[in-house]
Amino acid sequence: MAGVEIRNLKKYFGDLHAVDGVDLSIREGEFLVLLGSSGSGKTTLLRMIAGLEHPTSGEIYIGGVRVDGDVPPRARGIAMVFQSYALYPHRTVFKNIAFPLEASRVPRQQIEAKVRWAAEMFSISRYLDRYPRQLSGGERQRVALCRALVRDPKVFLLDEPLANLDAKLRNTARDDLKRFQRQIGTTTVYVTHDQIEAMGLGDRIVVMEHGKVRQVGTPQDVYEDPVDTFVATFVGQPPMNLLDLGDPSLPPRTLLGFRPEHFLPRSTFAAGEDVRAFRFSVRRVEYLGSDRYVYGAVAESATPDATVIAKLPGTIAQAIPEGETQEFAVPRAALRYFDADTGLRRRS
């Protein structure tokens, strides 16, 4: 077991700065999620840790040993699971899982025992004689995890391993994955563009954009204390509302941010509560069962057309007629301030 240390890592593809100066310290046993949209550099970063891409500059240490130079992937003590699972199509499940052990010349009996142990752990013992094409997506994903597990790696690298599963399966797979990681306690780096996966799995989340790290923190940190407007709108569904109020009590060019679930009818708050009230003209209401999404505009805003979303839990029964203006409010503690020009958070 070991941590991973990344210092000023860069990877340029011609003019494209895929990874542009990343510093990251991944703790021993930690489950770290790299979150970003496609093209944010998260997969390139992972592939550099794996040794599949050579960095343009910068340093990578795995367990204190520098590996960014000429240490090939096989010697880095890592295991990787690709989005496509990359199973060997002409080998049975058993042979797939045994492959890394055969490659490192482990005695046959030990291989047998180890494969059976891993297959037991992911409950795929029944499929050991089948070929990958005879398995469902979820089963293939577990085979890929098994194959990663038997290597006894210092670090797991997972590249969107749940992206090819259907929504229902993804929930249980996420739970299995987290439980499994806790059980073996191996440092894990997990790449995803899905913020729900990131929030649910990560001990810490690294939000990336355009090859740069925007914020590193626990799911709570990232959600409740975003460092800039990018993180504020990227994490959370629906995204954080950002309003330019032109309020004279605030410094000029300040954006006011609040989460849709904090933006509720005035009447749901107690009379003495410290809230900021808005006149909210409701355009449309979406009934989603557990929640209602209310789309509309805020009259106080400097750009009155900008859409503002309120997320009302099912416990609020109050009728919200479309086309009318209502009084809504946000607790002052839930308000966040950002610089309109730089996008950075203002702590005032």
């Binding site: 794996a50 040794g51 599949l52 090939p72 992937p73 096989r74 890592i78 295991a79 990787m80 690709f82 496509s84 990359a86 199973l87 060997y88 199509p89 492959f99 890394p100 490659a103 490192s104 194959r147 290597r151």
Partner: peptide, 11 residues
């Protein structure tokens, strides 16, 4: 990816 996987797996 299959070939990259093999490189990670020890080849």
């Amino acid at each position: 990816e299959i070939e990259e996987q093999a490189m990670i797996d020890g080849y």
